[in-house]
């Protein structure tokens, strides 16, 4: 890798942020750490959907399904066998899963790999479809995955869900995985592989005429995206310490889609910004659900108001600023320096 100014600054920034987060656990409160972890997990999810939708143009609404697969597989890997025996009360857990016991990093990887395998089997039939049909079909598969999770009691503990997942996902671990996702995706997207994906997105027919095996690249992109969605799901499970099938409904896909659209389709830095801003916004909006005292008048809290504002924000973005924060541009050091120079002069 050629080291220019941008790359050196990138490494320095990553290292600095890492050191900062390492120290952060001592001076930040529990709540701030909770939000911080959520931001990094959401960044992973947003980046993975952006690869599928923003860079390859595959309108997939099945993200919640892959996240669910990742979360369940990693939870099954990381729980101690005794714990599993106690928790599965409806039906005893079946053999290979009852004995599994792996370290944290392996369970996260296993979650990602399992999601990618699922994605492969889904991709082969559905990726022949175009835009909105693809959206509905992937949404259908996510729903089928959820129904399977509810019914496969011997593996997933059914609708009771899995509780007491050890919380190995510390702030630093989440940061590390987010960084890993970002680096892998950046290397992919700014390579010839990425050019091919963008070509497929912009004009599929032209791509196939130029001799690109469109289907193969689509499947690859879909599976890589699903892998990182699974990784995000594994971290999410470890972060929340409890998972159940109801969590992984369409609302989750919608949230991730919102990060990507708000940040800008086809922009990695956009996804990072989008996920960060919206996660903070969503937490901040909790305030309007609590009673407010304005001194002269007491406003009652309105439960559920958060989601109303949230959907209005998405509607406003799509109506008035369709390209999101970044469009397809990236936030690079060159751009930042150019901006600074322009404003100094």
């Amino acid at each position: 890798m050629r080291l220019n100014r941008g790359a050196i600054l990138n490494i320095a920034a990553m290292f600095l942020l890492g050191c900062l987060l390492w120290q952060a656990e001592s001076f930040l409160g529990d709540y701030q750490i909770y939000i911080g972890k959520l931001i990094f997990i959401n960044i992973i999810l947003a980046l993975s959907l952006n690869l599928i939708y923003g860079f390859t143009g595959l309108f997939s609404l099945g993200h919640a399904g892959f996240i669910a697969v990742g979360a369940y597989v990693s939870a099954l890997c990381i729980l101690a066998p005794e714990q599993k025996e106690m928790m599965w009360i409806l039906e005893p857990i079946i053999w290979p899963f009852s004995e599994l016991f792996t370290p944290f990093w392996a369970s996260v990887l296993a979650g990602g790999v399992a999601a990618a395998i699922f994605a492969f089997f889904i991709a082969v039939p559905v990726l022949r479809l175009g835009d909105d049909y693809l959206g509905i079909a992937t949404l259908g598969f996510a729903e089928i995955i959820r129904v399977l999770i509810v019914n496969a009691t011997a593996v997933t503990n059914g609708s009771l869900g899995i509780k007491g997942i050890p919380s190995h996902a510390t702030l630093l671990a989440c940061y590390g995985w987010a960084l890993f996702t970002l680096i892998v995706l950046a290397r992919l997207v700014f390579s010839n592989f990425g050019n091919v994906l963008r070509c497929i997105r912009d004009n599929e027919i032209a791509a196939s005429v130029m001799g690109i095996n469109v289907f193969r690249y689509k499947v690859l992109s879909f599976c890589i995206g699903a892998f990182f969605a699974g990784v995000g799901g594994a971290l999410l499970g470890s972060h929340l310490s409890t998972i159940d099938p109801k969590m992984f409904n369409f609302l989750l896909t919608f949230n991730v889609l919102m990060f990507v659209v708000a940040g800008g389709l086809g922009s990695l830095t956009g996804s990072i910004l989008g996920a960060t801003v919206i996660t903070i916004l969503l937490e901040w909006l909790r305030a309007i659900e609590e009673p407010m005292n304005l001194g002269f008048v007491e406003l009652p809290g309105i439960p559920g108001m958060r989601m109303v504002v949230f959907s209005l924000v998405l509607l406003a973005i799509i109506l008035y600023r369709r390209e999101g924060i970044m469009g397809t541009r990236e936030l690079t050091w060159t751009r930042i320096f150019a901006f600074l120079r322009r404003h100094k002069a």
Binding site: M307, V308, S311
Partner: peptide
């Protein structure tokens, strides 16, 4: 874009109904 707008409207109506 229109499809995403439709999804947003759907969530808006649902969450407004919850409120």
């Amino acid at each position: 874009s229109a499809l995403i707008s439709a999804i947003a409207v759907s969530f808006f109506i649902e969450s407004l109904a919850v409120v």
